[in-house]
Amino acid sequence: MKTVIFIPARYASTRYPGKPLVELTGATGEAKSLIRRAWDAANQVQGADAVYVLTDDDRIAAHARSFGAEVLMTSSNARNGTERCAEAVAQLGTPPETVINLQGDAPLTPPWFVEALIQTMQDPAVQMATPVLKCDAETLTNFVTDRQNGRVGGTTAVMRADGTALYFSKEVLPYVGSLDNPPEVWHHVGVYGYRPAALAAYMQWPEGPLEKAEGLEQLRFLENGTPVTCTAVEARGRVFWELNNPIDVARIEGVLKKEGIA
């Protein structure tokens, strides 16, 4: 297999325990779990050879298998989705050329986001990559509102001129002084592409102070000198948002209904 998509999912989320099994109602009134909607999104991607749900939780595994997903059981020692992906690669026997980590809390990820990432990974010099999306007014307002109310919402990215990442943060970066005339803010999309060798190296590095402070796994690459290539993607009218807090359920259901997603 050249490209596989992994969907890491854990039950014991600090901010939202049991999050993968939370049900979201779509445009037709049908409720589907968060992990089911992430799996549906992954299966719309062109260019992937297989999709697996990764978990250490029997409840998530049983539920995923009930709707037809292939499941790889990973250890409870995995501290984040990247570590879970590294464990899963070892279970495949022959490693793929590219591993895509589609976060289990991002069911609104359009297939063209992931397809653009797969295209970026065609460059053999790229060891790790992730999409970024320029914030529209609604998304930026959600970012600022969450921080003003003490909630940690999405993640922002700041980049060099060549598109490699300078930093990722759960704060809104750069500083937004006014929503009437805001600076350009880039929303980090919770999808990663890796080379198996980059995943192996990741497992050898300790958790760094920035990764620990922000709770952002990709910072371990930056802290250890591995460039992270940011792939700019376009929303094409689709609102992108992850499920980070209970308040996001209504936000995501609103988008599902607006977009006619069952």
Rank of each mutant, 00 (worst) to 15 (best):
K2W: 04
P8Q: 08
G18V: 03
G18H: 05
G18Y: 07
G18Q: 08
L21C: 07
L21N: 06
V22C: 02
V22R: 01
L24A: 03
G26S: 06
A27G: 04
G29C: 07
E30H: 09
A38I: 01
A38W: 01
A38T: 09
W39M: 04
Q44C: 11
G47C: 11
A48V: 13
D49N: 11
Y52E: 05
T55N: 03
D58F: 01
I60N: 01
H63R: 09
S66G: 07
F67G: 09
G68T: 13
A69P: 10
E70C: 06
V71E: 14
S75N: 07
S75G: 09
S76R: 14
N77K: 14
R79Y: 09
N80K: 05
G81T: 08
C85E: 06
A88I: 09
A90H: 11
L92C: 06
L92H: 08
T94M: 13
P95H: 14
E97M: 07
E97F: 01
T98C: 13
V99D: 15
N101A: 13
D105F: 01
A106T: 08
P107V: 05
L108H: 07
L108A: 06
T109W: 03
P110S: 13
P111Y: 08
E115G: 06
E115V: 04
L117C: 12
I118L: 09
Q119E: 15
M121E: 03
M121F: 02
Q122Y: 02
P124T: 10
P124C: 05
A125Q: 14
V126W: 02
V126P: 06
V126Y: 03
T130G: 14
V132E: 04
L133N: 05
E138P: 00
E138S: 13
L140K: 00
L140V: 00
T141K: 14
F143C: 04
V144Q: 06
V144C: 10
V144H: 02
T145E: 14
G153P: 03
T155E: 07
T155V: 15
T156Q: 08
A157F: 08
A157H: 08
R160Y: 10
R160I: 00
R160S: 05
A161T: 11
D162T: 03
Y167A: 10
Y167N: 13
F168V: 00
F168E: 01
K170H: 11
V172S: 04
Y175R: 10
G177W: 11
G177Y: 10
N181C: 01
P182Y: 02
P183C: 06
E184L: 08
H188I: 00
P196V: 07
A198V: 04
A198G: 11
A200V: 14
A200H: 06
A201N: 11
Y202F: 14
Y202P: 05
M203E: 15
E207C: 06
E207L: 09
E207A: 10
E211D: 11
E211P: 06
A213Q: 10
L216W: 10
Q218T: 06
F221D: 04
N224Y: 14
G225I: 07
P227D: 09
P227N: 12
V228P: 11
T229D: 13
C230M: 15
T231A: 15
V233P: 11
V233C: 15
A235D: 13
R236N: 15
G237I: 12
R238N: 15
R238Q: 15
F240W: 10
F240C: 04
E242K: 02
P246S: 04
A250I: 02
A250F: 00
R251C: 02
E253I: 00
A262I: 13
